[in-house]
Computed example of a mutant assay.
Amino acid sequence: MERRATFRAPLLPWLLVLPQLLIVFVFFYWPSGEAFRWAFTLEQPWGGGREWVGWQNFLEIFVSTHYWASVRVSMIYAFGTSALAIVIALLLALFIDREVRGSRGWRVALIWPYAVAAPAIGMIFRFVFDARAGVFSLLNAVSPGFWDPSMNGTHAMVMLIFAGSWQLIAYNFVFFLAGLQSIPRPLTEAAAMDGAGPLRRMRDIQVPLLAPTFFFLVVINLTDSFTNSFGLVDIMTGGGPARATDIMVYKIYSDGFKGLDYSGAAAQSVILMLLVVALTFIQFRFVERKMRYR
Rank of each mutant, 00 (worst) to 15 (best):
L272F: 04
P13V: 10
T81L: 00
I169K: 05
F175K: 03
E99W: 06
V158Y: 03
M1F: 11
F25E: 05
G195T: 10
L94C: 07
Y67C: 04
R132I: 14
A244N: 05
Q56C: 08
T65H: 12
W38G: 11
E34S: 10
A131T: 13
M193F: 07
V219P: 03
S182F: 02
N152M: 01
E189P: 00
G240L: 01
V116P: 09
F40T: 11
V128T: 10
G197E: 05
A93M: 00
W106Y: 10
Y114M: 13
F162G: 08
N228P: 14
M151C: 14
K290H: 15
F136N: 08
S229F: 04
E288G: 13
G33P: 00
M273A: 12
R72C: 06
A5G: 07
I23L: 15
F127A: 14
L160S: 03
E43Y: 08
L11K: 14
V277R: 09
V26G: 07
M123R: 15
G47P: 00
F214A: 12
A244H: 01
W147G: 04
D224W: 13
D224C: 11
F136A: 07
R185V: 14
L168Q: 10
F62P: 00
L180M: 05
V174S: 02
G238M: 00
G80A: 01
Q268Y: 00
V277W: 12
K251E: 06
P198D: 02
A178Y: 03
L177S: 03
S150N: 14
E60H: 15
E288M: 15
G164A: 07
P113R: 04
T213E: 04
M248G: 02
L59K: 12
A120R: 08
R285Q: 13
Y67E: 01
S269T: 04
R200G: 13
D234W: 14
T245Q: 01
L180C: 05
E34N: 13
A178I: 02
V116W: 06
G49R: 04
M291I: 15
A131V: 09
E189M: 00
P144E: 12
P19K: 04
F226L: 10
D204T: 12
I161H: 02
L232M: 03
V73G: 01
F216L: 14
V100H: 15
Q268A: 04
I247D: 01
M291E: 13
D261A: 14
F286W: 14
A190Q: 06
I205E: 00
E189V: 03
G122V: 09
S143I: 14
T41Y: 10
V100F: 15
F7Y: 09
V71S: 01
M157S: 05
M236G: 00
L12Y: 11
A115D: 04
